[in-house]
Amino acid sequence: MVIHRLGVVGAGLMGSGIAEVAARQGIDVIVVEANEAAAQAGLARITKSLDRGMRSGKLTEDARTDALGHIEVTTSFERFTDREMIVEAVIEDESTKLDVFRRLDPIVEDQGAVLASNTSSIPIMKLAMATKRPEQVVGIHFFNPVPVMPLVEVVTSLMTDPKVEQAAHEFAGGQLGKHVIKSKDRAGFIVNALLIPYLLSAIRMFESGFATAEDIDTGMVDGCAHPMGPLALADLIGLDTTMAVAQSLYEEFKEPLYAPPPLLSRMCEAGLLGRKVGRGFYQYS
């Protein structure tokens, strides 16, 4: 199944990135946001990313113009009536995502579109059961920043039709050129089930006063050849997203290694969410 018409719900960092990589492959993309201001901010984010690609020589001016010509931003879910696949990419909050799937289901029911979630931690089965056709729901988990990161996790629930899984694999791997790995439907999937306990352990170490943030990160970069230390990585991911994934993992497994440390909770409550707000474990200009 080749996707010609894609829908994306959400124009934040992930949604705008998904829209960009699809449009660069000639796919017609409609992005829906909650309001006009958010829609225009999403379009500006995509334009800025394409401009950056052009300045770095990775994209020609014609390719930039062509990609923008394949993207429409709107506030109307009704524009999705002809979509072959829709990817939900709203905030990592279960109730918000469930609401999106409830709204999408009757709109695309007649054409049998694939409904995908970019969730990084919420079991796909939970989202699928908000629809009348859970067999059409699949997880397609991209990584931030989407235009740069090569990996995608394709996640199937107990109900996902094998043809839908194949369509997701062909879309992400074939059309978008991503490296696809397959995961069963457990909270956190493959990458975050391994990554989040590591990040939380680093936060606990910093919280206890055992070492500075700089020394923790330097230890993992220079001692383990990681490209980025765990606290800087948590800032890049977003501490709110890190918190949400940890909560989802802890709810599923009830294991202490998944429990969010108090410091992470306090930082989220204070709005110190990392790079996107200019301050997390580090200050950003």
Results as ranks from 00 to 15, higher is better:
residue 151 L to V: 14
residue 18 I to R: 09
residue 147 P to T: 13
residue 86 I to E: 03
residue 107 I to A: 09
residue 60 T to A: 07
residue 240 D to F: 08
residue 257 L to G: 06
residue 99 D to M: 02
residue 248 S to I: 01
residue 145 P to A: 13
residue 225 A to E: 03
residue 234 A to S: 01
residue 117 S to T: 07
residue 118 N to E: 03
residue 92 E to D: 05
residue 8 V to G: 01
residue 50 L to I: 14
residue 14 M to Q: 07
residue 184 K to N: 13
residue 165 E to L: 13
residue 49 S to H: 06
residue 114 V to W: 01
residue 267 M to D: 10
residue 72 E to Y: 05
residue 125 M to F: 12
residue 183 S to R: 08
residue 173 G to D: 09
residue 233 L to C: 05
residue 194 L to K: 02
residue 120 S to I: 14
residue 124 I to W: 02
residue 119 T to R: 07
residue 209 G to I: 04
residue 31 V to R: 01
residue 63 A to V: 05
residue 168 A to C: 15
residue 17 G to E: 14
residue 212 T to F: 06
residue 265 S to R: 14
residue 22 A to L: 15
residue 157 S to G: 14
residue 225 A to V: 04
residue 223 G to S: 00
residue 36 E to H: 03
residue 206 F to R: 08
residue 157 S to C: 05
residue 197 P to V: 04
residue 238 G to M: 03
residue 221 V to T: 12
residue 263 L to E: 01
residue 191 V to Q: 06
residue 161 D to N: 15
residue 268 C to M: 12
residue 268 C to L: 11
residue 48 K to L: 08
residue 209 G to E: 08
residue 172 A to W: 14
residue 106 P to M: 10
residue 180 V to I: 12
residue 274 G to H: 05
residue 247 Q to F: 06
residue 101 F to Q: 02
residue 214 E to T: 13
residue 188 G to A: 04
residue 12 G to I: 02
residue 109 E to G: 08
residue 264 L to M: 09
residue 188 G to P: 04
residue 131 T to N: 14
residue 207 E to Q: 06
residue 117 S to R: 06
residue 71 I to D: 00
residue 249 L to P: 06
residue 247 Q to G: 13
residue 257 L to P: 05
residue 63 A to R: 13
residue 90 V to F: 02
residue 143 F to M: 15
residue 231 L to I: 09
residue 233 L to M: 06
residue 272 L to F: 08
residue 219 G to T: 05
residue 98 L to T: 12
residue 51 D to K: 06
residue 120 S to T: 12
residue 285 S to A: 04
residue 75 T to L: 01
residue 115 L to S: 00
residue 86 I to K: 04
residue 70 H to C: 06
residue 129 M to T: 13
residue 57 G to C: 03
residue 33 E to I: 10
residue 277 V to S: 08
residue 86 I to T: 05
residue 168 A to M: 10
